[in-house]
Design a protein around this nucleic acid. Sequence first.
DNA 1: CTCCTGATGTCAGAAACTGACATGGATTTA
DNA 2: TAAATCCATGTCAGTTTCTGACATCAGGAG
Lengths: 210, 210
Amino acid sequence: MARWEPDARGRLEQAALELFRERGYDRTTVEDIARRAGLTERTFFRYFADKREVLFSGAKELEQRIVEGVAGAPVQAGPLAAVASAIEAACAHLEERRDIEYARARYDLIVRHPELQERELIKLAALAAAITGALRERGVEEAAAALAAEAGMAIFRVAFERWITAKKPQSLAAQVRPTLATLRAVAAQGEPASESERGSPPGKRKPNRR
Amino acid sequence: MARWEPDARGRLEQAALELFRERGYDRTTVEDIARRAGLTERTFFRYFADKREVLFSGAKELEQRIVEGVAGAPVQAGPLAAVASAIEAACAHLEERRDIEYARARYDLIVRHPELQERELIKLAALAAAITGALRERGVEEAAAALAAEAGMAIFRVAFERWITAKKPQSLAAQVRPTLATLRAVAAQGEPASESERGSPPGKRKPNRR
DNA sequence: CTCCTGATGTCAGAAACTGACATGGATTTA
DNA sequence: TAAATCCATGTCAGTTTCTGACATCAGGAG
């Protein structure tokens, strides 16, 4: 027989989410969480670097999945297209693993607590950095890679927000493409007329969609 | 005669930066900072919500400045152009107020300390939200506004990084336009050639200006 | 059986933060 | 001018987060 109940980490995560919802984030101490999971405060901090981290265990996997998606995108795809398709795939997978109820509960918590937003933001920043690296692997130049990665994060954020606040049930992954299109439209708006952005005569202008 | 030395807040900020540089961020306690400023720990927390905040007093003014810049951009400017020009102006002003040495010292600290990065990120997120609001005031639709704001933040980040890590002395503001151009190029790359992008939802495309 | 490993517990303590109340020049008011 | 009161700061006690050091003890390896 096992010496300890299995999945201490998972128990801590679940206990934490329950308690945060029951009493609120700041009225829940780490000791509360640990006790509900049948463990001690010290053990909590062996699994999670701090109190916030207990809500962000999925970040690593998401990052890995997206990086793989970027690396595996068709060679002819541009950086932004590669990122967007990776995000789309990751979103689809994310929807399979967790139902929207969980996502909403977690989202509400994060939105209401700046310290949790901060953590969320740094996770996304780490994700952006990882994407930048994956794009560089594809031969994309540094600044372009960073910008495409950040743009991808912006798309993800907007798509996610649309999904989570939507009244009618819809897919998260389905938000990605239209959001990408909107971003492209915004970027194109007011763009200098010719390719080289200075004085050169308007040679072969890019086909202006629409 | 004044009862207390003037500018307690400023003294705290300066003492903090000095000590962070001398001993490092985590080997400096709030009490250390307060003492060097001739105050007590309790008073520190009356001026700053927490230890990190002492490094971010300029954020409010930057936000206000950029929002004004967006609001004051020429009416015919598209959202991204409006944001970029506001950022450019704010950068120019920022360069006047603080020298690059200060910027580098602060940047080094933030880069090396995740908790400070988190704070930096949430300030930028707040800035993005404010920009989104300013764009909405200009009649830009919600998703487009959010995306343009996030894109602006991406530009700012990349421009700032280039500026701060540059060997040759150059202007921060001067980094903005080329970075915007790069972003536009990235966004345009691989864009669907014709107006309907691959049978995706009937997006309401805006008429392309210019 | 003995040794060792590794997850957990126990304990003490530093540091971040908060609420309540005190202090005493400065400023306003009677 | 004397009194009232204002308010930036100090003092103090307390909670919570997080860390280091060491103890415990079932189970697997030899």
